[in-house]
Amino acid sequence: MKTILIVDDSISIRQVVGMTLKGQGFDVIEAVDGVDALKKLTGQKVHLIISDVNMPNMDGITLLKEIKQIPAYRFTPVVMLTTEGAEEKKEQGRAAGAKAWITKPFRPEQMLAAVNKLILP
């Protein structure tokens, strides 16, 4: 079973994403911010990371840079959640190596489509 880490400070986003993905047979773990995410990544295999950009403690872009430094996760696909028009953030994200984006607000099926374009269920 493939494991997905969802990093977002909003519990509702985590829940919706979690429910959607679990419903499709993915294992989902949650983290509330970048620091928490790095903790959750150790000691288990995560196949895909979905991360919000704006979060307290450690934001998504810093998290992305950190992930690229971890040998076990340097090639793991990361989907960034961003809001409409946050071009500056997007630019920073691209510079940090972000390739996949989902614009908030998104519908569960959009999320699922993005995930399916990145990893096999």
Partner: peptide
């Protein structure tokens, strides 16, 4: 590959 993309995911999609 380095970007974390896998062509087979797209094919399966």
């Amino acid at each position: 590959f380095r970007d974390g993309m896998d062509p087979m995911s797209q094919l399966s999609y």
